[in-house]
Protein backbone atom coordinates (compact mmCIF):
# COMPACT_ATOMS: atom_id res chain seq x y z
CA UNK A 1 0.00 0.00 0.00
CA UNK A 2 1.22 3.47 -0.87
CA UNK A 3 0.20 6.60 0.98
CA UNK A 4 -1.27 9.24 -1.33
CA UNK A 5 0.13 12.45 0.16
CA UNK A 6 -1.48 14.53 -2.53
CA UNK A 7 -4.88 13.24 -1.55
CA UNK A 8 -4.28 13.95 2.13
CA UNK A 9 -3.84 17.58 1.15
CA UNK A 10 -6.88 17.52 -1.15
CA UNK A 11 -8.96 15.97 1.61
CA UNK A 12 -7.65 18.47 4.13
CA UNK A 13 -8.83 21.35 1.96
CA UNK A 14 -12.13 19.60 1.36
CA UNK A 15 -12.64 19.22 5.14
CA UNK A 16 -12.24 22.91 5.89
CA UNK A 17 -15.90 23.80 5.14
CA UNK A 18 -16.89 21.42 7.97
CA UNK A 19 -14.78 23.30 10.51
CA UNK A 20 -17.40 25.98 11.26
CA UNK A 21 -19.93 23.23 12.02
CA UNK A 22 -17.56 21.51 14.44
CA UNK A 23 -16.62 24.82 16.09
CA UNK A 24 -20.27 25.88 16.35
CA UNK A 25 -21.20 22.63 18.11
CA UNK A 26 -18.21 23.03 20.43
CA UNK A 27 -18.85 26.69 21.17
CA UNK A 28 -22.59 26.29 21.79
CA UNK A 29 -22.19 23.23 24.01
CA UNK A 30 -19.33 24.74 26.00
CA UNK A 31 -21.11 28.08 26.42
CA UNK A 32 -24.48 26.60 27.43
CA UNK A 33 -22.67 23.95 29.47
CA UNK A 34 -20.81 26.66 31.35
CA UNK A 35 -24.06 28.41 32.25
CA UNK A 36 -25.81 25.19 33.27
CA UNK A 37 -22.69 24.00 35.05
CA UNK A 38 -22.24 27.23 37.02
CA UNK A 39 -25.85 27.14 38.17
CA UNK A 40 -25.58 23.46 39.13
CA UNK A 41 -22.27 23.96 40.93
CA UNK A 42 -23.58 26.91 42.96
CA UNK A 43 -26.77 24.99 43.80
CA UNK A 44 -24.80 21.97 44.97
CA UNK A 45 -22.15 23.89 46.85
CA UNK A 46 -24.64 26.03 48.77
CA UNK A 47 -27.14 23.17 49.11
CA UNK A 48 -30.03 25.25 47.77
CA UNK A 49 -33.22 23.57 49.04
CA UNK A 50 -35.45 21.77 46.50
CA UNK A 51 -33.00 22.35 43.64
CA UNK A 52 -30.15 20.54 45.35
CA UNK A 53 -31.35 16.94 44.84
CA UNK A 54 -32.41 17.74 41.26
CA UNK A 55 -28.97 19.14 40.46
CA UNK A 56 -27.22 16.16 42.04
CA UNK A 57 -29.39 13.70 40.12
CA UNK A 58 -28.71 15.56 36.87
CA UNK A 59 -24.96 15.27 37.38
CA UNK A 60 -24.87 11.58 38.26
CA UNK A 61 -27.32 10.54 35.52
CA UNK A 62 -25.63 12.51 32.76
CA UNK A 63 -22.10 11.60 33.80
CA UNK A 64 -23.23 8.02 34.20
CA UNK A 65 -24.39 7.68 30.59
CA UNK A 66 -22.51 8.11 27.30
CA UNK A 67 -22.71 11.30 25.28
CA UNK A 68 -23.91 9.34 22.26
CA UNK A 69 -26.83 8.01 24.30
CA UNK A 70 -27.83 11.56 25.23
CA UNK A 71 -27.80 12.47 21.57
CA UNK A 72 -30.05 9.56 20.63
CA UNK A 73 -32.46 10.15 23.47
CA UNK A 74 -32.81 13.82 22.55
CA UNK A 75 -32.98 13.04 18.84
CA UNK A 76 -35.77 10.48 19.19
CA UNK A 77 -37.45 11.74 22.35
CA UNK A 78 -37.59 15.50 21.90
CA UNK A 79 -39.66 15.47 18.68
CA UNK A 80 -42.32 13.31 20.35
CA UNK A 81 -42.39 15.67 23.30
CA UNK A 82 -42.55 18.81 21.15
CA UNK A 83 -45.17 17.47 18.75
CA UNK A 84 -47.26 16.23 21.64
CA UNK A 85 -47.11 19.64 23.28
CA UNK A 86 -47.79 21.68 20.15
CA UNK A 87 -50.65 19.34 19.22
CA UNK A 88 -52.42 19.79 22.49
CA UNK A 89 -51.84 23.55 22.38
CA UNK A 90 -53.09 23.70 18.79
CA UNK A 91 -49.87 25.23 17.47
CA UNK A 92 -48.69 24.59 13.93
CA UNK A 93 -45.01 24.13 14.86
CA UNK A 94 -43.66 20.69 13.99
CA UNK A 95 -40.41 19.12 15.17
CA UNK A 96 -39.33 18.37 11.59
CA UNK A 97 -38.54 22.05 11.20
CA UNK A 98 -35.79 21.76 13.82
CA UNK A 99 -32.46 21.46 11.99
CA UNK A 100 -30.44 18.33 12.77
CA UNK A 101 -27.67 20.35 14.31
CA UNK A 102 -30.19 21.71 16.83
CA UNK A 103 -30.39 18.26 18.42
CA UNK A 104 -26.62 18.18 18.73
CA UNK A 105 -26.64 21.65 20.34
CA UNK A 106 -29.27 20.65 22.89
CA UNK A 107 -27.94 17.23 23.78
CA UNK A 108 -24.27 18.21 23.94
CA UNK A 109 -25.11 21.25 26.08
CA UNK A 110 -26.83 18.91 28.52
CA UNK A 111 -23.77 16.63 28.47
CA UNK A 112 -21.33 19.50 28.88
CA UNK A 113 -23.38 21.04 31.71
CA UNK A 114 -22.89 18.00 33.93
CA UNK A 115 -19.13 17.81 33.39
CA UNK A 116 -18.79 21.58 33.52
CA UNK A 117 -20.51 21.69 36.91
CA UNK A 118 -17.57 19.73 38.32
CA UNK A 119 -15.10 22.06 36.61
CA UNK A 120 -16.82 25.10 38.11
CA UNK A 121 -17.18 23.39 41.48
CA UNK A 122 -13.47 22.74 41.73
CA UNK A 123 -12.87 26.36 40.76
CA UNK A 124 -15.24 27.57 43.47
CA UNK A 125 -13.59 25.33 46.04
CA UNK A 126 -10.24 26.85 45.12
CA UNK A 127 -11.47 30.28 46.25
CA UNK A 128 -10.62 30.93 49.87
CA UNK A 129 -13.58 31.28 52.23
CA UNK A 130 -12.09 34.55 53.45
CA UNK A 131 -12.89 36.12 50.09
CA UNK A 132 -16.66 35.84 50.46
CA UNK A 133 -16.42 36.89 54.11
CA UNK A 134 -14.51 40.00 53.09
CA UNK A 135 -17.17 40.71 50.47
CA UNK A 136 -19.93 40.33 53.05
CA UNK A 137 -18.02 42.44 55.53
CA UNK A 138 -18.04 45.43 53.19
CA UNK A 139 -21.79 45.00 52.77
CA UNK A 140 -22.08 43.13 49.48
CA UNK A 141 -25.08 40.93 48.83
CA UNK A 142 -24.47 37.26 48.03
CA UNK A 143 -25.19 37.97 44.38
CA UNK A 144 -22.69 40.85 44.24
CA UNK A 145 -20.07 38.79 46.04
CA UNK A 146 -20.56 35.91 43.61
CA UNK A 147 -20.43 38.01 40.51
CA UNK A 148 -17.62 40.38 41.43
CA UNK A 149 -15.40 38.38 43.77
CA UNK A 150 -15.99 34.62 43.75
CA UNK A 151 -16.80 33.72 40.15
CA UNK A 152 -13.94 35.69 38.55
CA UNK A 153 -11.44 33.94 40.83
CA UNK A 154 -13.11 30.57 40.34
CA UNK A 155 -13.00 31.10 36.59
CA UNK A 156 -9.28 31.84 36.64
CA UNK A 157 -8.69 28.75 38.78
CA UNK A 158 -10.68 26.51 36.43
CA UNK A 159 -9.05 27.56 33.16
CA UNK A 160 -6.90 24.41 32.79
CA UNK A 161 -9.91 22.14 33.33
CA UNK A 162 -12.00 24.35 31.11
CA UNK A 163 -9.59 23.93 28.24
CA UNK A 164 -9.81 20.17 28.74
CA UNK A 165 -13.58 20.48 28.44
CA UNK A 166 -13.38 22.51 25.23
CA UNK A 167 -11.05 19.96 23.66
CA UNK A 168 -13.30 17.11 24.81
CA UNK A 169 -16.37 18.76 23.31
CA UNK A 170 -14.56 19.50 20.04
CA UNK A 171 -13.65 15.84 19.69
CA UNK A 172 -17.11 14.84 20.92
CA UNK A 173 -18.71 16.93 18.18
CA UNK A 174 -17.82 14.09 15.77
CA UNK A 175 -20.72 12.13 17.29
CA UNK A 176 -23.12 14.51 15.57
CA UNK A 177 -22.54 12.56 12.35
CA UNK A 178 -24.91 9.92 13.75
CA UNK A 179 -27.79 12.37 13.36
CA UNK A 180 -26.71 13.36 9.85
CA UNK A 181 -24.77 16.49 10.75
CA UNK A 182 -21.81 16.85 8.41
CA UNK A 183 -18.99 17.64 10.77
CA UNK A 184 -15.32 16.94 10.12
CA UNK A 185 -15.38 13.13 10.36
CA UNK A 186 -18.56 12.80 8.30
CA UNK A 187 -17.04 15.10 5.73
CA UNK A 188 -13.91 12.93 5.61
CA UNK A 189 -16.06 9.92 4.88
CA UNK A 190 -17.88 11.76 2.10
CA UNK A 191 -14.59 12.93 0.59
CA UNK A 192 -13.21 9.40 0.64
CA UNK A 193 -16.19 7.73 -1.04
CA UNK A 194 -15.08 9.24 -4.37
CA UNK A 195 -11.85 7.18 -4.48
CA UNK A 196 -12.00 4.89 -1.40
CA UNK A 197 -8.91 6.45 0.16
CA UNK A 198 -10.43 6.41 3.65
CA UNK A 199 -7.08 6.21 5.38
CA UNK A 200 -5.82 9.43 3.80
CA UNK A 201 -9.12 11.19 4.44
CA UNK A 202 -9.16 10.30 8.13
CA UNK A 203 -5.49 11.22 8.46
CA UNK A 204 -6.41 14.63 7.10
CA UNK A 205 -9.23 14.80 9.66
CA UNK A 206 -6.80 13.86 12.43
CA UNK A 207 -4.42 16.61 11.34
CA UNK A 208 -7.23 19.09 11.31
CA UNK A 209 -8.37 18.13 14.82
CA UNK A 210 -4.85 18.30 16.08
CA UNK A 211 -4.44 21.77 14.60
CA UNK A 212 -7.67 22.98 16.18
CA UNK A 213 -6.72 21.46 19.53
CA UNK A 214 -3.33 23.12 19.37
CA UNK A 215 -5.09 26.43 18.78
CA UNK A 216 -7.30 25.87 21.83
CA UNK A 217 -4.22 25.13 23.93
CA UNK A 218 -2.53 28.32 22.82
CA UNK A 219 -5.66 30.36 23.50
CA UNK A 220 -5.92 28.86 26.98
CA UNK A 221 -2.32 29.73 27.70
CA UNK A 222 -3.03 33.33 26.68
CA UNK A 223 -6.18 33.45 28.78
CA UNK A 224 -4.34 32.01 31.76
CA UNK A 225 -1.73 34.69 31.51
CA UNK A 226 -4.43 37.34 31.23
CA UNK A 227 -6.70 36.13 34.04
CA UNK A 228 -4.03 34.98 36.45
CA UNK A 229 -2.20 38.27 36.25
CA UNK A 230 -2.94 38.82 39.91
CA UNK A 231 -0.96 35.76 40.94
CA UNK A 232 2.24 37.09 39.50
CA UNK A 233 3.81 38.14 42.79
CA UNK A 234 4.94 35.59 45.27
CA UNK A 235 5.12 37.34 48.57
CA UNK A 236 2.26 35.83 50.53
Amino acid sequence: MKLDFGFIWTAFIALLPAVPTALAITAVSVFCGLIIGTAVAVIRLYKVPVLYPIASAYVTVIRGTPMLTHLFIIYFGLPMLIDGATDSLGLSFRSVSIPMIGFAYISFSITAGAYMSEVVRSGLLAVNRGQIEAAYSIGMTTFQAMRRIILPQAFAASLPNLSNMVIGMLHGSTLAFTVSVVEINAKAQIVATTNWKFFEAYLAAALLFWGLTFLIERLTALAERRFNLYNRGGVS
Partner: peptide, 12 residues
Protein backbone atom coordinates in the same frame (compact mmCIF):
# COMPACT_ATOMS: atom_id res chain seq x y z
CA UNK B 1 -16.35 46.88 58.87
CA UNK B 2 -13.91 44.11 59.57
CA UNK B 3 -10.13 43.94 59.38
CA UNK B 4 -9.15 40.29 59.19
CA UNK B 5 -6.25 38.47 60.74
CA UNK B 6 -5.43 36.96 57.32
CA UNK B 7 -6.09 40.30 55.53
CA UNK B 8 -8.55 38.69 53.05
CA UNK B 9 -7.91 41.26 50.36
CA UNK B 10 -9.67 40.54 47.08
CA UNK B 11 -6.91 38.60 45.35
CA UNK B 12 -7.84 39.55 41.81
Amino acid sequence: AMVFQQYNLFKH
